[in-house]
Structure formats: structure tokens, C-alpha cells
Amino acid sequence: MTYKLISNGKTLKGETTTEAVDAATAEKVFKQYANDNGVDGEWTYDDATKTFTVTE
């Protein structure tokens, strides 16, 4: 399945996607992506749209 990340960081804003077997796997990928880009904030997940959002 395709999962989307919306980043509302102070230094990184935008969207990216990943293919993953489940939401937990996608979350690990996205949290590593955010960490690699210096984004640390509040996370939410919408199962209906398969979208994670991180806001700093």
C-alpha cells in the first residue's frame, strides 16, 4: 500500500510517499525520514487516507 507523509516542519515542508506492508512499517520509514531531515514534532495518522502528518 502507498502511505503519505505531510511534513509541516520549521525547515522542511512538503509531502512524500512510501510503499509499505502496513502503517507501522510506513511510520518507521517516515520517522527515520523526518529524523534525517531534522524534523521533530507531533505526529498524527489518518487511516482513511493512509496519511501521516508531522507538525513542528
Rank of each mutant, 00 (worst) to 15 (best):
S7H: 14
T44P: 00
V29K: 09
Y3K: 01
A26H: 00
V29F: 15
W43M: 04
F52L: 00
V29R: 08
A34W: 07
G9Y: 06
T44E: 10
Y45N: 00
T53V: 08
T49S: 10
Y33F: 13
T55P: 01
A34C: 14
E42C: 11
K13F: 11
V54D: 01
M1K: 11
D22K: 02
E19R: 13
T11V: 12
K28F: 08
G9N: 09
K10P: 15
G38F: 07
E15C: 15
E19F: 15
T51F: 02
A20Y: 02
D36A: 12
E15W: 13
K31A: 04
T2F: 07
Y3E: 03
T55C: 08
E19Q: 14
E56P: 09
T17Y: 15
M1H: 15
V39L: 14
T17C: 13
K28E: 08
G41K: 02
W43V: 02
T11K: 10
T16D: 03
I6G: 02
A20W: 02
N37D: 03
Y45Q: 01
D46I: 04
K10T: 14
A23K: 13
K28R: 11
A34H: 03
K31C: 05
N37G: 05
Q32R: 09
K31F: 05
T49A: 06
Y3W: 05
T49D: 04
G38C: 08
A24Q: 12
S7C: 15
G38L: 06
G38Q: 07
K13I: 13
T53S: 07
A34D: 01
T49E: 05
G41F: 04
L12G: 10
K31V: 05
F52V: 00
L5N: 01
E42G: 05
K28C: 09
T53Q: 05
F30W: 01
T17D: 04
V29Y: 15
Y3Q: 02
F52P: 01
E27N: 04
L5T: 02
Y33I: 09
K4N: 05
Q32W: 05
T25H: 12
L5E: 03
N8R: 08
V39N: 03
E27D: 04
A23F: 11
A26Q: 00
K28D: 05
L12K: 07
T16L: 14
I6T: 05
Y3S: 02
T51Q: 04
